[in-house]
């Protein structure tokens, strides 16, 4: 974040930093991304591992929340079955704006190895996805990298969500 130190203020003993609203808001948003605990399948185990002792997600300001009302990021970790798809969309709708989606693992990206009647062939048929994370199952480091990429993306966005027309938001 670009900060512009103002001399006359500091000389008066006041710690003032000037920045734009966009940068301030995005700084706040990107550094406290709270994902929804939405473990679907195998990848959820790796998602838990990345929240646990060795990989420690908390140091990135990422704390898993159990309620969609409190969450900013939905990490779709694992295979989304057709029976579950309705609930995934409902949880996405319940999340408050601004919200982002990480599709974790091959199954969530394209259906992966489960090219069957019962699996949704890519969660982008249901919800707009910001980050696609390959792997089966992706390692916890990969999930952390994906989250850092998402932070980068958020910092580039405008604070006014109406201006951020999502590229792949073709459903609404």
């Amino acid at each position: 974040m670009a900060q512009h130190q103002v001399n006359y203020a500091s000389s008066a003993g006041l710690p003032i930093a000037l920045t734009s609203v966009d940068k301030l808001v995005n700084w706040g948003r990107s550094n406290s991304l709270w994902p929804l605990t939405y473990g679907l399948a195998c990848c959820a185990i790796e998602m838990m591992a990345s929240g646990a002792s060795r990989y420690d997600f908390d140091r990135m300001g990422t704390i898993f929340r159990a309620s969609p009302r409190q969450a900013d990021v939905m990490i779709l970790a694992g295979t989304l079955s057709k029976k579950h798809s309705e609930f995934a969309r409902r949880l996405y709708d319940q999340m408050t704006e601004p919200k982002w989606v990480i599709s974790m693992g091959s199954c969530a990206n394209t259906g992966g190895m489960f090219n069957t009647y019962a699996t949704v062939q890519g969660v982008d048929r249901i919800v707009p996805v910001d980050i696609y994370l390959p792997g089966c199952a992706p390692r916890p480091e990969t999930l952390q990298y994906a989250l850092m990429m998402l932070q980068k993306k958020i910092r580039k966005e405008s604070a006014d969500m109406k201006k951020n027309k999502k590229q792949n938001l073709r459903l609404v």
Binding site: L40, A41, G78, T79, S81, K83, H84, F87, F114, T116, Y117, A118, T119
Partner: peptide, 11 residues
């Protein structure tokens, strides 16, 4: 149950 049915037996 069935929210993680992936058709493994069919596969």
């Amino acid at each position: 149950i069935g929210y993680l049915h992936r058709g493994i037996e069919k596969m």
